[in-house]
Design a protein around this nucleic acid. Structure first.
Length: 280
DNA sequence: CGGCAAACCTGCGAGC
DNA sequence: TGCTCGCAGGTTTGCC
């Protein structure tokens, strides 16, 4: 599923597709995803102009002129398509369709239905439970090694597991947790509270770096979303360790001496990929 | 409260 | 070819 960078790309695409535009109608093709779809939402949105699109962690929030709106989470398999209604071919698992004035539509496709869409009022969006509990935005100005050190103080859980906790840092998922630890040269098994100040700093920088890099990669595909298949929610990353078990990481590869340095293990039920030579 | 397994649901690739 | 198994980028819940 989309982690922060993919969600950021979706947010930008929705923003640009709806800018100043009017929503003509909203169609639900089934009553629920992970949770029941908000039955009154189509009525609240139709005829309204989109006022604001934003992202918080892995969530996208959309508000229309009358102050109503919704929050969207893509779960593991959620994908957004933006397409001309004319050239439209429905796909399996197209659950929500949002028709825009001007002949385009936004489609939410989610095979596994771990995603969800709920009503949200602009006046009170910050008290949405997931947001109330959510940690610092890693791409915001507030994020630093010192902040990381302070949130992780007393947390003895492995640093990899802590990075996945949305109340620690918002938006990091399994891929970028692995990648950030790799670039910081930190073992995923280290206790979260036990890093040095330099290591917290290196980790914070690595988190920003991998997220920015991924957004950049997705941003280039965004340019063509009107022409290509238009699926937003996934894109190709250049990964150093994730899903590369048995291969060599970029740095070991450059050294030529090392091979098969990337190993896979399981922490808190999730795969962790790391370089056995560079992450200590 | 901390930590972990299980649950939610479908699809895909590997292996037989 | 066709079956079964294990695995998948997230989050919540319920149990020690």
């Amino acid at each position: 599923m989309p982690e922060l960078p993919e969600v950021e790309i979706v947010k930008r695409a929705l923003d640009s597709a709806t800018k100043g535009g009017r929503i003509e109608k909203v169609v639900f093709n089934r009553p629920d995803l992970r949770f029941p779809l908000p039955a009154t939402l189509p009525e609240m949105l139709s005829g309204q102009t989109v006022k604001r699109v934003q992202r918080r962690g892995k969530y996208v929030v959309v508000f229309v002129q009358n102050g109503h709106g919704f929050v969207l989470h893509l779960g593991m398999s959620g994908v957004i398509r933006i397409e001309d209604v004319g050239g439209y071919t429905p796909e399996k698992h197209d659950h929500v369709e949002l028709y825009l004035a001007g002949g385009r539509r936004i489609v939410l496709n989610d095979a596994r239905r771990f995603g969800f869409l709920e009503s949200l009022e602009e006046a009170s969006w910050q008290s949405y439970p997931a947001f109330a509990a959510m940690g610092v935005e890693p791409l915001g100005n507030d994020f630093s090694g010192a902040v990381l050190a302070s949130v992780l103080a007393k947390r003895k859980t492995p640093i990899k597991v802590a990075l996945l906790d949305q109340s620690v840092v918002a938006g990091i998922g399994n891929i970028y947790a692995c990648e950030a630890l790799y670039y910081a040269g930190i073992s995923p098994f280290r206790a979260a509270c036990d890093l040095s100040a330099d290591e917290y700093e290196a980790l914070a920088m690595s988190v920003k770096k991998v997220l920015f890099k991924a957004i950049e990669a997705g941003g280039s595909s965004l340019k063509d979303y009107k022409h290509a298949d238009g699926k937003l929610g996934y894109f190709q990353h250049q990964l150093a360790v994730y899903d590369r078990e048995g291969q060599s990481c970029p740095r070991c590869k450059c050294d030529t001496m090392q091979g098969d340095c990337v190993q896979r293990t399981v922490q808190a039920g999730r795969s962790t990929f790391y370089c056995t030579k560079r992450q200590v």
